[in-house]
Computed example of a mutant assay.
Amino acid sequence: MEHLKNTKYYSDEILKDWIENESLNETLANRADTIRRNIYGDKVYVRGLIEFSNFCKNDCFYCGIRKSNKNVERYRLTPQEIIDCADIGYKLGFRTYVMQGGEDTYYTDDMIIEVIETVKDKHPDTAITLSLGEKPYQSYKRFYEAGADRYLLREETSDRKHYSKLHPSYMSFDNRRESLWQLKEIGYQVGGGFMVDSPYQTTEGLIKDLRFLQELEPDMIGIGPYLSSKDTPFRDFSDGSFTKTLRLVSILRILFPYALIPATTALGTINPLGREMGLKAGANVLMPNLSPTMYRKQYQLYDNKICTGDEAAECKACLSLRVDKSGYKIVTDKGDVITRQTDLAF
Rank of each mutant, 00 (worst) to 15 (best):
A259R: 12
D336L: 00
P257Y: 00
K244S: 11
G93H: 05
H123G: 04
C63K: 07
N271Q: 06
M294S: 13
L180T: 09
E185P: 00
S320W: 15
D174S: 14
Y107A: 08
T202I: 00
K67T: 09
D59K: 10
S164L: 14
N25Q: 06
H162W: 04
N71S: 14
G101S: 02
C85K: 03
T269F: 02
K135F: 14
N30L: 14
N284Q: 02
A32Y: 03
A32S: 10
G274A: 11
N30F: 06
L166Y: 10
S228N: 08
V119S: 02
Q80I: 03
D149P: 13
T308M: 03
R47H: 02
L248V: 03
F212S: 01
G335N: 10
I50N: 05
E204S: 15
K16H: 13
M171C: 01
Q298I: 05
A312K: 11
I35T: 02
Y163M: 01
S158Q: 14
L344F: 12
L344V: 15
N304I: 08
S68G: 05
K5P: 09
Y328Q: 00
I207E: 04
G102R: 11
R296P: 08
F234C: 12
Q189T: 12
I35P: 10
A312D: 12
A32P: 06
E13Y: 03
D59A: 13
E276W: 00
I82P: 12
V190L: 08
I186Y: 08
Y75S: 09
G335M: 11
N71C: 09
D87F: 07
R150L: 01
H3N: 14
N284E: 08
P79E: 05
A32L: 07
D219W: 07
A148V: 09
T293Q: 13
E51D: 01
T245K: 10
Y163Q: 09
Y299E: 01
L152K: 09
W18S: 04
L24C: 04
N69W: 00
A148Q: 06
I88Y: 02
K165E: 10
N6V: 06
L166R: 05
V46Q: 11
F194T: 03
G278W: 00
K141I: 11
L15T: 03
K244D: 05
K141D: 14
K122R: 08
E134W: 09
L216H: 05
E215D: 15
I113P: 10
K334C: 13
D174Y: 13
N54I: 04
L246A: 02
S291L: 00
C307Y: 15
D12N: 15
K43R: 15
L166D: 04
A29I: 08
G101C: 06
Y90Q: 09
I50K: 02
L252W: 07
P136M: 04
P168S: 04
E20I: 01
V249M: 11
R31F: 12
L248R: 06
Y140E: 03
E314T: 11
M220H: 15
R211E: 04
S131D: 08
D324K: 14
V331I: 12
E114M: 04
V44M: 04
L206V: 13
Y226C: 15
D231S: 12
N271L: 01
G222R: 03
Q214V: 01
I338T: 08
S179M: 06
G222F: 00
K230T: 13
L290H: 02
D197K: 09
T27R: 04
G327W: 08
C85E: 01
G133I: 09
S241G: 07
D336C: 05
K325V: 13
A127S: 12
E276A: 03
